[in-house]
Design a protein around this nucleic acid. Structure first.
Lengths: 112, 112
DNA sequence: CGCTTGTTTCGATGTCTGTCGATACAGTCG
DNA sequence: CGACTGTATCGACAGACATCGAAACAAGCG
């Protein structure tokens, strides 16, 4: 994907923008944002759904839905291990977005 | 705002997540993403609306609407100068999001 | 094998969002 | 002033989304 250089440098193409906007959409909900940070900051870098339901005021199916959105956006991975399902962050996805938003030293283009 | 350290480090609070999710929501549309990169990468770091309408297949009111969303999310500033209205990127906002998504060296927490 | 607990899927519902055309507003120029 | 160009707002509408309760699925345990 040709989408990972700072967007400040050159205009995003249509395709790149479409893909990236899907990831940002996944981050555009407060619950999902907190879920992701909860997963990422959890011991071992992963968390089971059972750890992720209690902190929120919404129903458990709703949490499951949000986790699915994060998964389909490529931001987290998941796996069932016995009774529980574990989720972990996929660092590359975050890194890609972080780089995209980066301001490369100067906010304006190189002078002369 | 206590919201600007990498989210991988510690769980986001409710308030921080609410504010940040509004910014990500502004980035969650392909047209807005392209608008922002168009503005940011434009000569002088700003662009007038007249430069921002042509590249897209949507109507001018729609572009105006998207610009408003970006402005209300604190991602761009704008000003009328004579006939034209100019938009420029607000680097601090991008930087905040970029830092939030950053992976601090190790993806998992420090081992032992 | 049936019960219990953890998780996902389904269907319904109310709200939000992107889009448009029409229209209003802001400057400029004759 | 009046016409014209550039931009924003309004009102309407279709499609997307967050949420829920109910029900299905999965794994362990008696």
């Amino acid at each position: 994907m040709a989408c990972c250089a700072p967007m400040v440098r050159e205009p995003l193409g249509e395709e790149a923008a479409a893909g990236l906007s899907r990831m940002f959409k996944a981050l555009s909900d407060p619950i999902r944002l907190r879920l992701l940070s909860l997963i990422a900051s959890h011991d071992g870098g992963e968390a089971c759904v059972c750890d992720l339901t209690a902190p929120f005021d919404v129903s458990q199916p709703t949490i499951s839905h949000h986790l699915k959105v994060l998964r389909e956006a490529g931001l987290v991975g998941s796996e069932r291990r016995g009774t529980w399902v574990y989720y972990w962050m996929l660092p590359e996805a975050l890194a890609k977005l972080s780089t995209l938003l980066e301001i490369p030293a100067m906010s304006a283009k190189a002078p002369t």
